[in-house]
Amino acid sequence: MPHQCTNCGRTFADGSKEMLSGCPDCSGTKFQFRPEGFDGSGSASDGPGSGGTSSPGEPSDASGERSGDAVSRRVGSAAATVRDLVGGSAGSDATSARRPAGESADAPPEGESGPGSADPEDDIIVAECEPVAEDAAQADARGGLATTGDLPDDPGTDATEEDVPEPTAGTDDSRTAVSEPDSETADRPDLAELRRELNEQFESIRVVEPGQYELNLMELYDREEYIIALQEDGRYSIQVPEAWHDGDD
């Protein structure tokens, strides 16, 4: 039971959807991560952040054993980076903070009274981000999207209690400033690096089995040659840029 409400101490299975709309018992929205090793012995009074020791998903870990999970997480990060680099609004983008925020962070995943914890959707991110091996509940939680009705309220209208963060200086939109932690921008690897990692680990089209494909959009977008026909054995025909023909003929 890796997640525990920091308010009432109720525990939740990893990937549990219950906690997505707040603790059913006390409506608390802060949870701490309890790795399996702490199972049963922990108490709510330990304070938040004690689960940080097990935080995986270090962006620099390029070993790629858990390729599927790691890659999808990095794709999310890359997307956020693309948008942020381009957005030009100096990290004042609420949406980029939603999913990818927790994913690339190597800080303790939750329970911190840091920026963003006032946003109930940030708790959703937290639930997705820390496990090393995804179990059925996590896969389920990842696949199932919470409807707006499942959430306590709109961010901002229900920004309760003391841990509403200071808006980031220099942004004119307080709503977006709230959900972008400062550390996030500081920790984020640059786009080129992320792109290289992605390309190394994940070809543009992976044939899971005939008729089932996984696509790396960034890689498809990046490549100059254009894939025009797939074959069942995983081979594909490409159309190469005209310039490539010059030397051959």
Partner: peptide, 11 residues
Amino acid sequence: FTQVNTMLIGI
């Protein structure tokens, strides 16, 4: 809020 939308809009 999907990976595809975020990535495409980013590109």
